[in-house]
Design a protein around this nucleic acid. Structure first.
Lengths: 211, 211
DNA sequence: ATATTGACTAACAATTTTGTTAACGCAAAT
DNA sequence: ATTTGCGTTAACAAAATTGTTAGTCAATAT
């Protein structure tokens, strides 16, 4: 079979396993994921898992690497353009991150869940993400400082601001099962919730910056 | 005398296992916890685990039940006294919850981590906690409504307010490894961080309530 | 003194989960 | 036509994890 035919057919075995594995890892974490469940969900025999990916750990690492790239883009894009005003940058950060989270709703819970005991498996992740976060924060601080010089906003630590933004953006998705159980399906209409949160969080953060 | 000595000297076998199990479950979750590690950490033979608690699942359930009670108190105390002003109640909620989280720093991550796939094991938890959260929110709404009537604050949905408070309070502890890695040990001095957060979060929330 | 009871140990059994291998079929290359 | 290589399968092996049991020991009750 030549490669052109391949393209026009449904997913091949390797891709099917990769997709099923991503879902399983995101939902259950490394410790809870089962290679047999992954193979079953992919509709292939169990041996195919090991044929294509050798071990559970290798496949996990590969997926982590992909996720790091995803996160990197989401973190860097909103601070790429230093010509924007502070207002615009903050709006970009909040809206960009919320869009990213809404598009990858399981990712935050997965990351938080893996972060505890097994730090060696996640060391690479922590390392990369901190690097990007530091870049992001130093750019924010730069913007804040010039806005302060112009009397446009009060002085504030970009790290605190970033922590507040991340908290307000991410937490509802992390705790979605609790939020929906306790608050009568508060997040049921995903789009409405997302747009409302963008407005609310932007307003909340901007109030902290008033001179 | 350090705490490990304490475990081996002052407590009986059952209590030693219980303590070690709580630590292991909190840190690694149900799927990641190992009954052998628990026994080893408790300094007893593996068989003792099963002698006292039969199965991994039974011990897990017992610990969950304890945690529900803990959480219940933390949720209900700050809204127990309806004679307080809205200001005071909100300060109580924020400070009370932050104290609770600081005293149980692994609990939020544990809960979030368990919330994903295996919802049957956690159904009881979700059920109870939503009940308490609903009580809490309806009391807050009541307070808000009377404050609005007196022109003391603007109208706001208690559910949104509660979500903001929970986000700002809990998230930094959930993401502590990332926060400390990215923000140069921002949370290293736990007490300083805790007191600062109380002030910051109270101020952030009160700004949302200004008439 | 003897029997009984409960905590305990060591060895083992069962189950679950991960990983491997020999063999097969089919398509492409020689 | 034969070989070669890849994807595949089924069965197996290995390892890890949970759970069980027969029997020991010491304290207590009879």
């Amino acid at each position: 079979m030549n490669s052109e035919d391949k393209i026009h057919q449904e997913l091949d075995t390797e891709a099917k396993i990769l997709l099923a594995a991503e879902k399983e890892f995101m939902l259950k974490g490394f410790a809870g994921a089962r290679t047999t469940s992954i193979a079953e969900a992919a509709g292939v025999t169990h041996a195919m898992f090991h044929y294509y990916f050798r071990t559970k750990e290798k496949l996990f690492d590969r997926i982590i690497t992909e996720k790091i790239e995803l996160l990197k883009d989401a973190l860097m894009k909103p601070v790429a353009d230093m010509d924007l005003t502070l207002d615009e940058m903050i709006r970009n950060i909040i809206e960009g991150h919320l869009d990213f989270i809404a598009a990858n709703p399981d990712l935050p819970r997965f990351i938080i869940g893996e972060l505890s005991g097994n730090s060696e498996r996640f060391a690479l992740f922590l390392d990369k993400i901190s690097t990007y976060a530091q870049i992001m924060i130093s750019r924010m601080q730069e913007k804040i400082d010039s806005a302060v010089a112009e009397g446009l906003c009060c002085h504030i630590d970009a790290r605190t601001l970033m922590m507040d933004i991340a908290s307000l953006n991410i937490f509802p998705y992390l705790a979605a099962p609790i939020v929906n159980a306790a608050l009568d399906n508060y997040m049921a209409d995903a789009d409405t919730f997302l747009e409302q949160r963008k407005k609310d969080n932007y307003a909340t953060i901007m109030r902290k910056l008033k001179p």
